[in-house]
Amino acid sequence: MMPFTYERALDASSAAKAAAQPGTKYIAGGTNLLDLMKLEIEKPAHLVDITRLPLRQIEATGDGVRIGSQVPNSDLAAHPLIRERYPVLAKALLAGASGQLRNKASTGGNLLQRTRCYYFYDAEKPCNKREPGSGCAALQGFNRIHAILGASDSCIAVHPSDMAVALTALDASIETLLPDGSKRTLPIGDLYRLPGDTPHIETTLKPGELITAVVLPAPPAGNQTYRKVRDRASYAFALVSVAAIVRVDAGRVRDARIAMGGVAHKPWRAVEAEKTLRGKPASMASFAAAAQAALRSAKGHGGNDFKIPLAQRVLTRTLADVAGIEGAA
C-alpha cells in the first residue's frame, strides 16, 4: 500500500472539493478499496473519508425511496421499505458477500466495486483495466468467470455487484454532487460504461464527483425476485445472476424488467428480452424465447462458454418463477 494522507470530511461539498485533487479517492466502507490498495492496484495518495457524512438516511420520497450513499448494505437490506416494496433489492443484497462485509460496505461503494478478474487482481499480469495498453491476460487465459455480453478485445471483465443488478432492474437513479457544488441525477444505466478500448474508465462520474444517494422510483407493479448462481452456497461471486420484475395480467406479461449480473462489464439490462416478453402469454415458451433474445449477442471466450446456456436456463426459470408459472412436470 502506498503511503497516503487522510482527511475526514464533515460536509459533502468540502469532500467533493478535496476529492477533485489528483490522486485522491473517497473511502467509505473500504471493503474493496483497501483490498485493492494492499495489492497496489489502487494507489491513492490522499483519502477523503466520507463515512461520517450525513448520508445515512433511507427515506420515502412520494412513491419512491431515497437511499443515502453511506447506508451500509445490511441496513439497506433490512429496511422495511426495501423488504416490503423492493424485495429484488433486498434479495440481491443478501446474496452478496458476507454478513461482515455487508455491515461495512456502503451503497455508493457497492456501485463502484471493481471487477474480480484474476488478472486485474494480479499486478504482475497484463491488464488494460489496471494498466492501460498492457493487454488483456484473460482473453487467452482462464476466463471461466468472464463476460459473455458487451465485452471487447481490450477487456472481458465483469462487474461483481449483486446490488447494482437489482438497481438496474428497478430503474434506479444516482444523485451526485460535483466539486463545483452542482448536483446531477443520472439513471443507473448511464453510470456504467462498457469496456470498449478504455476499460480503465468504468463509470461516467467526473473527478471528485460524489455519489450522495440512490433514488428508487415507485416499485413497478408485478412480482420481483433475484436469483444468483455461484460455485458454492454462500460467500462467492455470481457466475450468473438475474433480477426480474414481471407483471402478469390475465395470463399475459404486461411488463417485464430484467437485469443480469456476472455476464458483462456492467449490470446488464436485458432490453431485448423485455421487449420480446411484453404482451406475450405467460408461458414457458415465452420465457424461453425471451431468454434466447437476451443472450442472442452473447459470445464466449472458451472458459466461459457455459455461461451462455447457463444464463439462458436460469433466466427462463427465474421468469417462470416470478410469473408464478410452473414448468411442465
Binding site: 414457458m284 457455459f306 447457463l310 414448468g327
Partner: peptide
C-alpha cells in the same frame, strides 16, 4: 456446475 449443465434436461 458447468460440467453437468450440458447433460441436464431442457429447463422449459
Amino acid at each position: 456446475l458447468d460440467k453437468v449443465l450440458g447433460g441436464l434436461p431442457d429447463t422449459g
